[in-house]
């Protein structure tokens, strides 16, 4: 009994570097061994998938990549999965960002990769509007005409010089929220709240959100109230979307590591508490 208590007490004094090594192994081993686990799809991700799936060829989605490399492991797989789904359905894609400069890099990297895979042409099937600072002012300005804010695309050419613009804007030549069939906000900060509070509430644009896990809980309120049609929360949200799409991407692979690290954290918390109880027991 005393020996067990002593061992438990010692385990509570684990060197932190050993814990780092254990976390590294718990992350790397499932990835290297390519372990697969069954993963039920969350209802909010299924709703998001269905919102994209309902779109018809020629419909338009506006994707806002409001995140940077620091949250890319969670949000970039969402972008790639949603783009794959949209391009598969021949939906037109407009891409923009409010997220300083990094959002643009992530967005262009993702859309170029997926467009190449589905043989989509820039200016005809998709357009990168670019980055504009101003957040809410940008959103309100776009309501009248996107050209108020984005007079040119990211490459510096006038928006109305592209065939995709003429096709979407139609006879009146004005592109605004009325032409958008679904807005996809990929968010790592507070911009997503404004998309919902301004563009959904005022202009009734249907939207889905893909958020980093840190901000996911606050977006559940918007999902529950019906303000957004679907929600992809963190790596799990991206993995669920990949599952619905029938692809095994980074998110699906990463979720096994996520599971093993969580098990390790739970064990370490239990061990820490047992060790503390043992220390008190010995007085």
């Amino acid at each position: 009994m005393n020996a067990a208590v002593r061992i438990l007490e010692q385990l509570g004094k684990l060197d932190r570097r050993l814990i780092y090594a254990l976390v590294f192994l718990a992350t790397a081993i499932p990835l290297i061994l390519n372990i697969k686990l069954p993963m039920p799809v969350s209802p909010e991700v299924k709703s998001a998938f269905e919102a994209v799936d309902r779109l018809k060829p020629g419909d338009v989605i506006l994707i806002s990549t409001d995140y940077g490399p620091s949250s890319a492991p969670e949000t970039q797989p969402m972008l790639e999965a949603i783009l794959s789904h949209a391009f598969k359905k021949n939906v037109k894609v407009l891409l923009m960002t409010h997220w300083r400069f990094e959002g643009l890099i992530m967005g262009i990297e993702g859309i170029d990769k997926v467009a190449k895979k589905y043989h989509k042409e820039y200016g005809k099937d998709y357009l990168v509007l670019g980055y504009r600072p101003g957040g809410t002012a940008v959103m309100i300005g776009m309501a009248e005409d996107f050209r108020n804010i984005f007079s040119t695309d990211n490459a510096g050419k006038p928006l109305d010089s592209y065939p995709i613009y003429k096709e979407i804007a139609g006879d009146d030549g004005v592109l605004n929220y009325k032409d958008i069939d679904l807005l996809v906000g990929l968010e790592a900060g507070s911009i997503g709240n404004f998309w919902i509070m301004i563009v959904n509430a005022r202009y009734k644009v249907p939207m889905i959100m893909g958020t980093t896990a840190v901000i996911t809980p606050e977006f559940f309120a918007f999902y529950q109230s019906g303000q957004i049609e679907g929600l992809l929360g963190g790596l799990k949200g991206a993995a669920d979307y990949e599952t619905l799409l029938g692809v095994v991407g980074f998110a699906s692979k990463g979720m096994v590591s996520q599971f093993s690290v969580h098990v390790l954290i739970i064990l370490l918390i239990l061990l820490g508490n047992l060790s503390d109880i043992a220390r008190r027991f010995r007085g």
Partner: peptide, 28 residues
């Protein structure tokens, strides 16, 4: 919220380790 935060931080670690063992070391 804290549980989701842990998940987010672990996801970032997974992203970096995946890069190291996949793109750099070609183990995956």
């Amino acid at each position: 919220a804290f549980g989701y935060t842990v998940m987010a931080r672990v996801s970032l670690l997974i992203g970096r380790i995946y890069f190291l063992i996949s793109d750099w070391l070609h183990l995956v």
